[in-house]
Amino acid sequence: MENNKPEIPNDLGVIRIADEVVSTVAGLAAVEVEGVATMSGGWGTDLVEKLGKRNLGKGIKVDATGEQTIIDIFIVIEFGYAIPKVAENVQKEVKIAVETMTGLTVAAVNVHVVSVMTKKAAAEANEGMIDSN
C-alpha cells in the first residue's frame, strides 16, 4: 500500500507526504473560505475534539494513490451564502493550497455539503473549538 503513495524524488532521496498532512492543509484552506461555517467530521471526531484534541484535518478524506490525489471535503455552510459558489471557492482554494504546499497533483476536490448553519451557531461552534485548545 505504502508503495502506491505519491513520492517526490530528488538527488538526496524521496519525499513522501502522509495523507494526514494533505488533509490538514486542505482543512485549513477550506475553513478560510468565506461562507464555510465549519468542517463536519462525524460524531467520533467531534467527541474527540470536545475532549480537547483539535483535529485540523477533520471532515477531509484523502485518496492519494498513484500520481493523482482526490480529496473529499465534508463541510457545513453558513446560511445566506450561495452553496455552489462557496463550494467552487473551496475547490479552488484547496487545490491551490495542496498543490502549492505539497507539490502533489490534485485531480479532484469533491465537496459534500452536509449541513447549513446560521452565523450565530457557526460562531458558537468555532468558539467551542478554540476553547478546547
Partner: peptide, 16 residues
C-alpha cells in the same frame, strides 16, 4: 449532486 465538473463534485446532503 449539485455540480459535477473537472474540479470535482459538489453535493448537498438531504439534511442540509
Amino acid at each position: 449532486i449539485v455540480d459535477k465538473g473537472l474540479a470535482g463534485e459538489v453535493s448537498i446532503s438531504i439534511a442540509a
